[in-house]
Design a protein around this nucleic acid. Structure first.
Lengths: 201, 201
DNA sequence: GCAATATTTAATCAAATGATTAAAATTTTT
DNA sequence: AAAAATTTTAATCATTTGATTAAATATTGC
């Protein structure tokens, strides 16, 4: 069934790999199925043979990427045994590592969620509500005067925004990719400190 | 020349208004010129008569939106007479007001910059480099141990990310639009406090 | 080795889409 | 009001694009 022989991937996996690249780079609407086929080194009909349609292939990829962006967050937030600071550190280091390896994901996922929120509603709703998590309880105990969602915005903004704003910041500051890489690594330790400072402010 | 008579706009302005709505909502690739024409209540040929092509019309709109997103930032950062805190407060209040009225802009502009950074290079480069601004000097004096770009990321992340992450946060927290509006207003005063705390951390 | 099955391709289709054209309708000028 | 200029439209093109089909090629089971 098109299995891999030695060095290279199966055809199905080659197509998925190409789809990951093209979809995350250009988004659903700007992606041509022919681009994916070319990138995978196969014919267009083969793509439809394996995945039936552009839409079906896209759903596989976007769900995969959503899982990459969200899958790790729930268990950390639910953990009753770790402190706020430990949760922030875990999330920051994990996400910055993940996003350095997959810098296109935030804009891709957030863009597609905005395009079609209904499609993702079911996917996310199955999970336990984050509003009832240990993290939310801890935040409410620590700062009863501030809506916990503020800190969720703050933490995600500190982690994710640099990856979304990178092209703009390169434009307006002229910062080089190598320097950005250094900055991202610094943020893995700094964000914990900054969030702590905000919690005490 | 198709000027407005009384209550309604000129045809040219009706098309631009429709283009603003459709382009910012769906992005360049997903936008159909027919959608813009329908939204404007005019025929498709008229759109090309006035603006020559989809691409030309798009450039007018995206430059307009980029100006809205960036135009106000440079003068604030250059001002030698205001403190860091005053600059942050000015930028936060101005941007949150602007983005509450135009919530689609960040994802739209950042997405299109990423698609074609070269197109915006010239536009942004004409301005004085922000790296040489009073704001950067002040940040370096205040925290010589931290790259000022970190704080630019932090401030823009705190301001802009909530607008980009809103659909996701609605999905995972179930927060209602009205509550988000309240949160956004709270952030106009909180961000200044949080940034100050981060600067002292 | 040969038949059955699975994989791959070239050619083609139908619909969508950006753009043009030539004519009709409207407005402006005189 | 007639002529000229402008504005608007319906019809149509050429290309792009997602998808299908039927035939060719390769692989697998016996």
């Amino acid at each position: 069934m098109g299995k891999t022989s030695k060095s290279d991937l199966s055809t199905e996996e080659k197509i998925k790999e190409a789809a990951r690249k093209v979809f995350t780079q250009k988004g659903y609407a700007a992606t041509r199925t022919r681009d994916i086929a070319d990138e995978a080194g196969i014919n267009l009909a083969l793509l439809n043979y394996y995945f039936r349609s552009k839409e079906k292939l896209f759903e596989i990829i976007i769900l995969e990427k959503m899982h990459l962006l969200l899958g790790r967050i729930a268990p950390v937030l639910m953990d009753e045994k770790t402190t706020i600071e430990q949760k922030v550190e875990q999330i920051a280091t994990h996400y910055i590592d993940t996003l350095m390896a997959n810098p296109d994901i935030p804009l891709f996922v957030l863009g597609e969620i905005k395009t079609n929120p209904a499609k993702f509603a079911t996917l996310v709703n199955t999970k336990t509500k984050i509003v009832d998590s240990a993290f939310f309880k801890q935040l409410k105990a620590r700062r009863p005067d501030i809506n916990p969602i503020h800190f969720v915005f703050n933490i995600l903004g500190l982690i994710i925004f640099p990856f979304i704003g990178k092209p703009l910041l390169q434009l307006i500051t002229g910062v080089k990719p190598a320097e950005i890489q250094t900055l991202m690594n610094e943020r893995k330790t700094q964000i914990k400190i900054w969030v702590e400072a905000m919690l005490n402010a």
